[in-house]
Lab assay of single mutants.
Amino acid sequence: TTEYTFTDDEEARRAIEELKKRGLTFRYEKHGTTWRVRVD
């Protein structure tokens, strides 16, 4: 499991789109302004 942290909404959304394109399994949660994206 790899975890990424983003504080920029645009950056987080781009990363999420990219992961979807690659067909990877991931989860994300947003805490205030911080996004945590975990890739299995």
Rank of each mutant, 00 (worst) to 15 (best):
V37R: 00
T34C: 15
D40Q: 13
T33I: 08
R36K: 13
A12H: 02
T7M: 08
L19I: 06
R22H: 08
D8G: 05
K20Y: 10
G32V: 01
V37G: 00
T5I: 15
Y4T: 03
R38W: 15
E18N: 09
R13W: 14
T2S: 07
L24I: 12
R38A: 11
V37D: 02
T1L: 11
K20L: 11
R13P: 01
K20C: 15
R38E: 14
T1M: 12
R36A: 04
E17I: 11
E3P: 02
V37F: 08
G32D: 05
F26H: 03
L24K: 06
T33R: 08
W35N: 03
F6C: 12
V39F: 05
T1K: 08
T34N: 07
R14A: 12
G32N: 04
G32L: 03
E29G: 04
A12M: 13
L19E: 00
T34H: 09
D9Y: 13
E3K: 03
L19T: 01
K30H: 05
T2C: 15
I16N: 03
I16H: 00
E10Y: 09
A12R: 02
R13A: 09
R27W: 15
R38Y: 15
T5V: 14
K21S: 09
E3I: 14
H31I: 15
R27Y: 14
E29F: 12
Y4S: 03
T25C: 14
I16W: 02
V37N: 00
T34A: 05
A12W: 07
K21T: 08
R36T: 14
E11S: 13
T34F: 12
I16M: 13
E17H: 08
V39S: 02
E18R: 06
R27G: 06
F26E: 02
A15H: 08
W35Q: 02
K20I: 13
K30N: 04
T2L: 13
A12V: 06
V39L: 07
R27F: 14
E17D: 10
Y28H: 03
E3T: 13
E11C: 12
Y28L: 11
T7D: 11
E10W: 08
L24V: 12
T33F: 09
F6A: 01
W35I: 14
T33L: 08
F6N: 01
E17F: 08
R38V: 15
T1A: 10
T33N: 14
Y28Q: 03
T5C: 13
Y28P: 01
T33D: 15
D8H: 05
G23K: 04
R14K: 11
D8V: 05
D8M: 04
R22D: 04
E29I: 11
D8R: 06
G23C: 10
F26I: 12
R14Y: 07
R13Q: 10
T5K: 05
D40I: 15
T7F: 12
T33K: 11
F6H: 01
R22Y: 07
K30G: 01
Y28C: 15
D8T: 12
R22C: 12
R22N: 08
G32E: 06
T1N: 07
Y4A: 02
T33P: 12
F6R: 00
T1H: 12
I16V: 04
Y4Q: 03
T7A: 07
T25Q: 10
V39W: 04
L24Q: 05
R14S: 08
T33A: 10
